[in-house]
């Protein structure tokens, strides 16, 4: 019904966080250039990149799921956009689906990203130790 809304909301938050981190890093770099000394901003860059990956997974998945909902006539191009929102009985069902299926979707994608990030970080640490 509208389960994709939950991962889409998480995608919005993840995108905002990664943009804030990138901006912070840019400001720090500019300050360092002005001060004439270079400090390590790598960790901030890595965090922003990893969070961007999470937002890519979430945007990609929820975008294609939104298309599926459009296919099944569950989304309409005008307010309130979700057909279930027109009927109170359907609205309750929709909210239930969002709180169960939608939340599980967001959690599963985040866990998948967490495992990938963990493996990648482990690989990066190993490389650093070897060097």
């Amino acid at each position: 019904m509208a389960c994709f809304v939950v991962p889409m909301a998480e995608a919005m938050v993840a995108t905002t966080v990664s943009k804030v981190l990138i901006k912070k890093e840019e400001q720090k770099s500019m300050q360092e250039i002005e001060d004439g000394f270079i400090n390590d901003t790598g960790s901030c860059r890595i965090e922003a990149r990893q969070i961007k990956k999470l937002s890519n997974f979430l945007w990609g998945g929820s975008g294609l799921l939104a298309f599926e909902h459009l296919w099944h006539g569950e989304i309409m191009p005008y307010f309130p956009f979700l057909t279930a929102a027109n009927n109170p009985a359907d609205l309750t069902k929709m909210l239930h689906e969002m709180s169960t299926v939608g939340v599980t979707m967001a959690v599963v994608v985040t866990l998948f990203w967490g495992v990938l990030t963990f493996i990648e970080m482990k690989g990066t640490n190993k490389k650093t130790v070897i060097q």
């Binding site: 990956k53 890519n56 945007w59 990609g60 998945g61 994608v109």
Partner: peptide, 20 residues
């Protein structure tokens, strides 16, 4: 890589849907 993000993201979400 963009395709990987799209399809893996959608696969995981549909997988959850299928389990339910």
């Amino acid at each position: 890589g963009i395709l990987c993000y799209e399809f893996w993201g959608a696969f995981l979400m549909w997988m959850v849907d299928a389990v339910y």
